[in-house]
Structure formats: structure tokens, C-alpha cells
Design a protein around this nucleic acid. Structure first.
Lengths: 134, 134
DNA sequence: ATTATTGTACTAATGGTTTAGTACAATAGG
DNA sequence: CCTATTGTACTAAACCATTAGTACAATAAT
């Protein structure tokens, strides 16, 4: 197996967390993108290799990758692998807008029910924003 | 049954949505709080009456109310009813801060994986903020 | 072409979630 | 007290989500 330039990603599963394995994988990919350990074009571990690594069934990894693909976050090609896609190209403007609306409203509603105001949310975002800067 | 001042709340369930009934109830309460149809001290429909209304089992309503109580959003008293609690009092400052961190980070991570930057999120929040103003 | 590598399909087992049935317990109010 | 009203406990059935087992299919590399 030749090294095709996979970034060193440390996946790990917590069996006791109650979070399904495939969701843990999705989360870890999302987080890796968020803090730039992964970027456009980067290859994810193959379904098999990650399955062996984590000692789970290949289908479980495949399921995670599938959901990521449905969301437009990765692209998979049989025989080649799974890669981080370029969302600015993959998602058109309208869908991007819809997505932004959807996740933001869910966030506001939840925060609101805990008594947080929009202003508090904005303040906090501005405060911790630098940690996520690109 | 005397009218004890229940606000007119229109609960409704979508059986086909795939979202469990009890979660739909929780969401509708959260949304009602978010846009001020419900506020501190307001009474929710009784477990029984809402169950009859929605044609589901009382335990399903009770479960929704229980989760809301665990989250500190409502207070229930047997024989009396279930009421919106005052979260600024119920949640201490530390827990409030933890909650803010938790839900905000989840929001950022998800948004980020879709290619949204913090600045976009802040802009959008400021844009739609007025709709949620108290 | 042949082989190794990649993802995929289909099935079944397990286990947890969700809901309802039924009966109970606590409080309020006369 | 007594009764109506409120939430609760316990059980079981149905459902669905998750994972693994196993075999297959598509592509790449030689």
C-alpha cells in the first residue's frame, strides 16, 4: 500500500458514549474540517482500513461516509476512495442559503428555550470566533 | 373545568415526519417560548387534556414534559399542572455558561463542515435577530 | 486481462426507543 | 374528609436504529 498522502487523522470511538459509531465518525470528520486538519481534496481513510483500525464492520464506516456524501461534504469513488469535496462548488447558492437558515434557526430556538437572547449568542460567537478562523 | 388562563396553544403532530411525538411536543414548547407565545409562569395543557387533543397516550405527553423539566424549562406539580419556569433563576451561572458553550460549539462545527465561516453566521444572526427580539 | 483496491448491497440479529394500556399516587378545593 | 384533577409507575408490544456477516461490484494499476 503506497502512501497517497493521507493526512494523519486520529479517529477513535467511545463505545460507552451512547453515540452511534457512524455518528462519531461523522462528527470527527466535521471537526477535522472545522479546524483545518482536513481540507478540499484530502482523502479519508479507506472504508476497510478505518474499519480495521477501529475494529468495526466496514459497513459502519461506509454508512458514515455515505451520510457525509449526502450532505455534500465528501465525494466517494469506488476503487479510488473518499475525498473532501469542495462545497462552494458542490452546493449551489440556494441550497447553501437553505442550509444556513435551517441550522441557524434550530440553534436559535434551542438557545432561546434555555433563556439565551440573540445578542448573547452573537457576543459569544464573536468571542470564540478566532479559535475557528481560517 | 375552570379556565385558569391557559394560553391558546395550537399543538399538532405529524405522524409521517419520523420525529417522535414526544420530541415534537418538546419542539413546539421550545418554539412557543422562543417567540413569546409562552413565558414564565404560563401553564401548559394538562397531560390528560393534551393527550386527548392529540389522540395519544398521556404517558407520551408526560414524557415530553419530563424532559422539559429535566432541562429546567418547565416545573411540574402533581395536582396543579406544568408551568414554564424561570430559567434565569433555575439555572445557575456556571451551568448556563456550559450550556451556551455546548450548543454554540455544536452549531459552529456543523455550520463549518458545510463551509460557513463564523462571520457568515454572525452576519446571518444579526440579520434575522429582530424576528426573535424580546 | 488479471489482480488488488476501493466502495456497495443484502440480510439478519441485536438492542434501544417509542408508544400505549392500565392502574396508581399526590395535590387542590370544596 | 371526599372528590376531582393533576402527574406518575410499571409493563408490554411494536417499531426502528444500529451493527455485523457475507458476498458482490466498480475502478485502478500492472
Amino acid at each position: 500500500m503506497t502512501d497517497i498522502g493521507l493526512k494523519r487523522l486520529e479517529f477513535s470511538l467511545d463505545a460507552k458514549s451512547g453515540v452511534p459509531y457512524y455518528k462519531q465518525i461523522i462528527l470527527q470528520v466535521e471537526m477535522a474540517i472545522a479546524d483545518r486538519r482536513l481540507g478540499q481534496g484530502d482523502q479519508l481513510p479507506t472504508v476497510r482500513s478505518l474499519a480495521v483500525d477501529l475494529q468495526i464492520n466496514p459497513n459502519t464506516v461506509a454508512r458514515a461516509y455515505n451520510e457525509l456524501e449526502i450532505r455534500g461534504i465528501v465525494t466517494t469513488q469506488q476503487g479510488t476512495g473518499t475525498f473532501i469535496s469542495d462545497k462552494q462548488i458542490e452546493l449551489d447558492h440556494v441550497k447553501r442559503e437553505q442550509m444556513l437558515t435551517e441550522i441557524t434557526r434550530a440553534f436559535i430556538t434551542k438557545a432561546n428555550s434555555y433563556g439565551f437572547t440573540i445578542d448573547e449568542l452573537i457576543d459569544y460567537l464573536q468571542e470564540i470566533g478566532p479559535e475557528y478562523e481560517r
